[in-house]
């Protein structure tokens, strides 16, 4: 038991500094990447993972049931808020026509296909199931 109590702060510091490493990687991506979409990608992934790991380390340090519950709630909030914000930023950038980096291209233009489908009613082709042998 005493051994566990001695080991727990080191485990917590390992988690906290791993999370700090991911935050640093996210900031390097934010500074170095050429485009809004790629910067948003770096922010959304590295920030969520780094915050989660730092919060796990702080849970190990706090070791109190009420505060651990609150930290778990904060971790859940950030893990749901960051993807939502990232999605909305991507949608806003696409709707505003923000230019992409040179050499990048877009596959499967989903928004334009949805607009086209709404404008034209869907034409259903007759099935030709029985004729094929």
């Amino acid at each position: 038991m005493i051994f566990v109590q001695q080991v727990i702060p080191y485990v917590a510091l390992f988690f906290i500094f791993s999370g700090f490493f991911f935050l640093l990687v996210g900031v390097v991506g934010l500074l170095r990447l050429p485009d809004v979409y790629t910067r948003m990608h770096a922010m959304g992934k590295c920030d969520t993972l780094g915050t989660g790991m730092v919060l796990i380390g702080l849970m190990l340090l706090f070791a109190d049931i009420t505060n651990v519950t609150k930290l778990l709630l904060i971790a859940a909030m950030i893990a749901t808020i960051n993807p939502v914000v990232t999605h909305l930023i991507a949608k806003t950038a696409y709707n505003r026509g923000t230019p992409m980096a040179e050499g990048s291209f877009l596959i499967n233009d989903y928004v334009a296909s949805q607009r086209r489908r709404r404008r034209q009613p869907l034409v259903t082709e007759p099935e030709k199931g029985g004729d094929i042998c």
């Binding site: 935050l23 996210g26 900031v27 934010l30 809004v36 910067r39 948003m40 922010m43 920030d47 915050t51 730092v54 919060l55 702080l58 930290l71 904060i74 950030i78 960051n82 914000v85 930023i89 806003t92 950038a93 505003r96 923000t98």
Partner: peptide, 23 residues
């Protein structure tokens, strides 16, 4: 260069401020 870069950067600063408050 655009507004959305600033939004992304402010989102990252917000996360760092939350972690600082907890520490």
């Amino acid at each position: 260069p655009t507004v959305l870069d600033r939004v992304v950067a402010m989102n990252m600063i917000t996360t760092n401020v939350v972690l600082t408050i907890l520490i």
